[in-house]
Amino acid sequence: MGLGGCIILIAAGAILTFATDWDMQGVNLDLVGLIFMIVGLIGVATFSSVARRRRVVMGAGTPVIDEERPHRGSYRDGQGS
């Protein structure tokens, strides 16, 4: 479930808990809305934790070494300089 799904769960839970006054026999809509909001918050926390772990930041001082490019004056390609 992505971040959008988690936000939809939180919104649907808030609507069920705070904005409705329906009475269904055998179903407590306030509790269902509360469960939706809790699951949505857990999803947001998990999504942000996974997204933070995937992010790789290389510092500005990290050297990039290209080992495939032949150096000038080498005989690796069969020709001299």
Rank of each mutant, 00 (worst) to 15 (best):
M1L: 13
M1Y: 08
M1E: 03
M1D: 03
M1N: 06
G2T: 15
L3D: 06
L3Y: 11
L3H: 10
G4N: 08
G5A: 09
G5V: 04
G5P: 02
G5I: 05
C6G: 01
C6E: 05
I7P: 00
I7C: 11
I8K: 14
I8M: 13
L9Q: 03
L9N: 03
L9K: 02
I10L: 11
I10C: 08
I10D: 00
I10S: 09
A11N: 11
A11K: 06
A12Q: 05
G13W: 00
G13P: 01
G13M: 01
G13C: 03
G13I: 05
A14M: 07
T17F: 07
F18H: 09
F18S: 05
A19P: 00
A19K: 10
T20P: 04
W22Q: 15
W22N: 15
D23C: 14
D23A: 14
D23G: 14
M24W: 10
G26L: 05
V27D: 09
N28I: 08
N28W: 08
N28A: 12
L29P: 07
L29V: 14
L29M: 13
L31D: 14
L31I: 13
G33W: 04
G33I: 01
L34H: 09
L34F: 12
I35V: 14
I35K: 00
I35Q: 05
F36C: 14
F36Q: 05
I38H: 14
I38R: 15
I38N: 09
V39K: 07
G40F: 09
L41H: 06
L41C: 15
I42E: 12
I42N: 13
G43S: 07
G43D: 02
V44P: 00
V44Q: 02
A45M: 15
T46F: 12
T46I: 13
T46V: 14
F47S: 03
F47D: 01
F47I: 12
F47C: 08
F47Q: 08
S48A: 06
S48Y: 04
S48D: 01
S49H: 07
V50N: 10
V50R: 06
A51K: 10
R53A: 09
R53H: 09
R53E: 10
R54C: 13
R54Y: 04
V57W: 12
M58V: 15
M58F: 10
G59H: 10
G59L: 13
A60R: 10
A60F: 01
G61E: 05
G61M: 03
G61I: 00
T62D: 04
T62W: 04
T62M: 10
P63W: 00
D66P: 01
D66C: 03
D66W: 04
E67S: 10
E67A: 08
E67W: 09
E67D: 12
R69F: 05
P70V: 03
H71W: 06
R72G: 07
G73Y: 00
G73I: 02
S74P: 00
S74E: 09
R76T: 14
R76K: 07
G78Q: 01
Q79N: 06
G80V: 11
G80K: 14
S81H: 12
S81K: 11
S81G: 15
S81Y: 12
S81P: 07
